[in-house]
Design a protein around this nucleic acid. Sequence first.
DNA 1: ACATATTCCTGGGGGC
DNA 2: TGCCCCCAGGAATATG
Length: 304
Amino acid sequence: MPELPEVETVRRTLLEGGLVGRRIRRVSVLHPDAVRHPSPASFASDLEGQAITDIGRRGKYLLLELEDGLLVAHLRMTGRLWLSEPDAEALSHTHVVLDLDDGRQLRFRDVRRFGGFHLVSRLDDPAAPRGLRELGPEPQDLTRRELAEACLRHPRLAVKGLLLDQRVVAGLGNIYVDEALHRARVHPLRSCGSLGRKELSAIARALREVLAQALANRGTTFLDFRDGAGEPGAFQEFLRVYRREGLPCRSCGAPIAKSRVAGRGTHFCPECQKGDGSPSSTAPSPTTTRSRPARISSSSKGAR
DNA sequence: ACATATTCCTGGGGGC
DNA sequence: TGCCCCCAGGAATATG
């Protein structure tokens, strides 16, 4: 599932593949759901004839800059965007194909059809996805202070839920939140209000480190992720907790646990990430809140 | 206003 | 072998 390192890898491989400077000759919308704005017909006619002038990224959004406008792509869970030879096999679930002026094609495929395109005039176009306009800072730019302020706004939220909120910090998903919290030795259920300065610093640092390592390995591929050249990533080999339930922690050997936090499957080491609410060794703020378990799944009503 | 649940979607895996 | 059900989850939307 493409998160920041995967989307950035797609961006870089599309750049390396020479997408910038190419002109779009023809647009085929094979499944209208993939085009979120404007209508598929306008999408095609507005795109045709335009050159791609640059490729950017914000959070998990890929930004194809055009001579006149901006093509915003989001891959969500299973989306793929890659440069293809025109005679390459037509994979099922291919929803959009852009024919380029060098004979190649930019293809978009998405089995689950969660992903798609917005064609807008610019980043702050009201027609751009709201999520893009409300995006928080990139993880590389996230300071401890910003994290602390977000914690102040959501003191009772589990820290995992905070990090998944794209308005707080952009580009994180389930894999890298679990990985970063393990590196920071913070339990995913810890309430934001209970986190001390050192823990917030550790989280911000762990985010930078794990994302840099994932990017160096061209992202994580379990099944679906492929880069802009159709190649899988390799970071799955280096994951410490994600999808490692029952396997030994790479730090201490204890079996990795799995539970559900903020509605997501959540992996952590019960030894390295102690305390689902209580201040552990490092918390410098001595008193304040007594350990509060910050239970997330308190379905008080008849849910289910 | 806030936090959580539901919804979208399909392939894969477990159970039988 | 095949069917059924559940699960994966980003982010918009609904609900409490």
